[in-house]
Nucleic acid binder design. Structure first.
Lengths: 236, 236
DNA sequence: CCAAAAGTGTTTTAGCTACACCCATGA
DNA sequence: TCATGGGTGTAGCTAAAACACTTTTGG
């Protein structure tokens, strides 16, 4: 058992989160950079001894983003014996001038449970943790090199999101409360990485009977104003 | 860190496996019964300090069934803080006359990674572990009461199997090497718990181009003999 | 030749795609 | 009135479902 800031954590278990956001037509995720190391990693954390796994992730993300009721989905648990490269973690601890024996447990083997989250990036204020000096949005196609197996964690999260997009459709969390059909389609396209047909997409969405139509959105441009939509109360 | 039979295991992490078999038209899973306790549980185990998570599960199942190359799929990780009821585990240790302090770690909180397996029950010779006196096939609809949250682990495994049945189709592992179309359909029906249309099912399977047709199977009954099929070498 | 079960051809249906047409909007 | 983009109608395609017909088997 290991202690950090007075809390007892379970040894050898961690979570890593792939936090998806959507801005300017781009799919992004949260990436943290550690002080003076040039090392980048997914936001993660440990599980307190008395805490549900799901709660630990929810609380950790709430601390980082300030958001409550984040949409979270567990997608895979990563347990390769060699997934923890101790030299990377050593570098991080040393850059933070942490040499004490009480933190050596962080250098040991960890099995990590992967979660992905969908959040509206406009509502977020980012808070890096004690070891990190930044917590920033990165375009999913322009990620920096990540430590350990975090690149494959991202890949698996994205694949899971693609597989589930038509089944659970929690995508309202990535958009504002109201959005145009074009914005929704753009989000689908950037997640699936393929162009969709405009008419077909609109019909499919409307036939699902999960969208509510609101007033039109006047852009000032010389063209027809699109309706705004939102998800219905009991959409799933 | 905790030791059992000279092997060092990671604290607080376990796996539980839902091993599916198919016999007499019924879907079954492996359930273990602990000595003199009346307590039933899924076959599970711990992860050695140097061992991949996937390998640990594979090795554990191989020891129990004698089978190599078992089809395994990780489906969820269970991490509720209250999922370990210590009184159940105490009962199991006491029934095995284990009171030593060195086994007390088994009473602590565990996060468990769930895997499901598909095996051909005809090829299996079952070996219960040291704490158990039996390892038996139970009809999925007639399970005994299981300890802890194992019932919900089974439910989630079954749901995952249903969701994946059309995508990965590793079902040959549940049947013999050769099988009739009716046997394959029966397996689908018992997994999905719904009747399927005979003609449609056959066409769908054949159109996938993953089955190979062999000689006919003469049953002695007064009707047309069905062909035997097997899965092609590179079926996926 | 009959009953039963297997294999396959045909029709119907549903969903998706692509194309096109009309509508709304502000320059 | 024109260019631009949004909403919807329609025809065509494909895959799946339902139905039915034919074939094979042993009594």
């Amino acid at each position: 058992m290991s202690t950090l800031n007075g809390v007892e954590y379970i040894d050898h278990i961690a979570y890593d989160s792939v936090v998806f956001g959507y801005a300017a037509g781009r799919l992004k995720i949260l990436v943290m950079e550690y002080h003076n190391t040039g090392l980048f990693a997914l936001p993660g954390g440990f599980i307190a001894m008395h805490e549900d796994l799901d709660e630990a992730v929810k609380n950790g993300l709430e601390a980082r983003t300030g958001l409550k009721d984040i949409y979270l989905e567990q997608f895979h648990t990563f347990g390769k014996a060699d997934r923890n490269k101790t030299d990377e973690m050593k570098k991080i601890l040393e850059a933070n001038e942490i040499h004490q024996k009480e933190f050596q447990w962080m250098l040991s083997r960890f099995i990590s449970v992967g979660y992905y989250a969908l959040i509206n990036h406009e509502l977020v204020t980012l808070h890096p943790d004690a070891l990190s000096d930044s917590c920033t949005w990165y375009d999913i196609n322009k990620l920096p090199k990540l430590i350990q197996d975090h690149a494959s964690i991202v890949a698996k999260a994205l694949q899971t999101l693609r597989d589930q997009i038509d089944r659970k459709l929690p995508l309202f969390a990535l958009l504002g409360e109201k959005f145009t059909m074009q914005e929704l389609q753009g989000l689908y396209e950037v997640i699936l990485d393929e162009k969709l047909h405009r008419g077909t997409f609109q019909r499919k969405m409307l036939s699902m009977d999960i969208l509510e139509r609101h007033e039109k959105k006047y852009s000032g441009a010389a063209n027809k104003a699109p309706y705004l939509y939102s998800f219905k109360k009991n959409w799933n």
